[in-house]
Write a protein that binds this DNA or RNA. Structure first.
Length: 462
RNA sequence: GCGCCCGUAGCUCAAUUGGAUAGAGUAUUGGACUUCGAAUCCAAGGGUUACAGGUUCGAUUCCUGUCGGGCGCACCA
């Protein structure tokens, strides 16, 4: 994934991050060798704008006249950044012309913001092997080198004083400017250099996670990988649609221009990273997501996150109880599996058998939501089964009668119990308990693996 | 105007990539705790898969058109 280090990560970035990390771990669970990379957009116009915005607030801080840039960043965090610059540089920058002062501001500000982005992602539980700087491509002359290489092969041409990438050769609707008349590069040029670099690192497939509003950019990047002699299919783009934040039925309005948007950090602080991730992954990437903050933090039945985690915790509790009562926890090889004859038991077994297929299909399709659906279904089947069937034997009278009064109570209770309960009790042999415990351990393992692959915790207690 | 994505139960979404009677959650209504976790379970109602054609033994899925929604269409990123 990528982001401009010009502001905090917002919920849209969060969805992308959750999606990217889930896809990455699904692929590695399926046997692929995966590397996660964050592309830092620390070059170009947006950064310039950041510098200009911070410099304006900096002048304001020292009581100077300012005309705040029309298209600048308006968020409150810009003032905070300006204060930091004021503390480290004092009034020194006031003496410099904007052309010198603004890049300094941009440099300081983007470094702080990048650190915060890294921190936010770490808190969210998303890791990257590589942080790739766009500016480093420019510094090393790789952008120009990329264009030169393509120019030699007649895939870049000069026209009207600008350089054009002949993407239409590969099916794009028209050619694209990569080097402007003023000699500076477009974003596309840097992106081409970046993809060239990645391809040179021998990845078979490049998977980009993009906001859905960038879909028009896909043909350009497909043309790029083809220009470097790779199949169009070696690039796969996952488009992530917008997140609609709700509080109950109330929509939370966001305006990036005015600097009013809900940050990823705020959401994670409010609902927790498990709930946030699960909600981000619950829907297909290319459908709009309604994210209800109230629902996400509600610890009740209608919250799908807790539903799945509860199943895991409930199982943990069963095994704890078994341990307390000194009922052994057998492994699946040591029990008589033919005792598991009930429809629900066979259903659970079939469901467990599907797990590897779900993981693989979900990985290949780059669709983590399939796993969230699967986990909800497995949890549902477990809850249903467990509600109907006893696993551990009822407390023995001998054990109970250590406490005299309770022993008496038990006796009257048994009479009060219906015939059905008695028959269930009677048929619950130690061998059946063992078989069911073994099955349930498999269920717990799959729940845990599924939660883990999505980046969620599998709690022992809740 | 051109291009991409989408349209499935009141609402939010699934549907093993073309397979059997289209499934979940939520909401509504009614029921189940003195025992292994009720953050749970059971039951009921709810559908012309936007519409119209076409391909196929078979279509929510593929093709064409219409309507409706979202997003793109920079020498911005």
């Amino acid at each position: 994934m990528s982001a401009n280090p010009t502001g905090p990560l917002h919920v849209g970035h969060g969805r992308g991050a959750a999606m990217g990390q889930a896809i990455a771990s699904l692929l590695s669970a399926s046997g692929f060798d995966v590397s996660r990379e964050f592309y830092i957009n620390d070059a170009g116009r947006q950064l310039q704008l950041l510098g200009r915005s911070v410099y304006a607030r900096y002048r304001e801080y020292w009581g100077k006249e300012v005309a705040f840039p029309e298209d600048g960043y308006h968020g409150d965090y810009i003032r905070a950044l300006a204060e930091t610059v004021a503390l480290t540089h004092g009034q020194a920058l006031l003496e410099n012309p904007p052309e010198l002062a603004e890049p300094v501001c941009a440099q300081v500000a983007s470094q702080i913001l990048l650190d915060r982005i890294k921190d936010d992602l770490a808190t969210f539980g998303v890791q990257f092997e590589t942080w790739f700087s766009e500016a480093s491509l420019h510094d090393k002359g790789l952008v120009q080198a990329t264009l030169d290489e393509l120019r030699e092969r007649d895939l870049v041409k000069e026209k009207d004083g600008a350089w054009w990438f002949r993407s239409s050769v590969f099916g794009d609707e028209k050619d694209r400017v990569v080097k402007k008349q003023d000699g500076s590069y477009t974003y596309l040029a840097a992106d081409m250099a970046y993809h060239r670099d990645k391809l040179a690192r021998k990845f078979d497939t490049l998977i980009n996670i993009w906001g859905a509003d960038h879909h028009g950019y896909i043909p350009r990047m497909e043309a790029t990988v083809q220009a470097f002699g790779h199949e169009k299919e070696s690039l796969r783009v996952v488009l992530v649609q917008m997140v609609n934040l709700l509080r109950g039925t109330q929509k939370i309005e966001m305006s990036k221009r005015a600097g009013e948007f809900v940050t990823l950090r705020e959401v994670v602080e409010e609902v927790g990273s498990d709930a946030a991730k699960f909600f981000f992954l619950m829907r297909r990437a290319d459908s709009h997501l309604d994210f209800d903050l109230e629902l996400a933090k509600r610890q009740s039945s209608d919250n799908p996150v807790y539903y799945v985690q509860y199943a895991h915790a409930r199982l943990a509790s069963v095994f704890r109880t078994a341990h307390e009562r000194q009922v052994p926890l057998p492994s699946i090889q040591d029990v008589d599996q033919t005792l598991l004859l009930q429809e629900e038991e066979l259903g659970l077994i079939k469901m467990l058998a599907q797990y590897p297929l779900i993981i693989e299909a979900s990985a290949l399709a780059l669709e983590p939501h399939r796993v969230t659906f699967y986990l909800q279904e497995l949890a549902a089947q477990f809850h249903s089964y467990y509600n109907k069937n006893r696993v551990l034997p009822l407390m023995d009278k001998a054990v109970k009668s250590e406490d005299g009064s309770q022993g008496l109570q038990m006796e009257t209770n048994e009479k009060a119990l219906g015939a059905e309960h008695l028959s269930v009790h009677a048929s619950l042999t130690p061998a059946l308990t063992a078989a069911r415990l073994a099955l349930l351990q498999q269920v717990q393992t799959v729940l845990r693996n599924g939660l883990t692959v999505l980046g969620l915790s599998a709690p022992e207690k809740m």
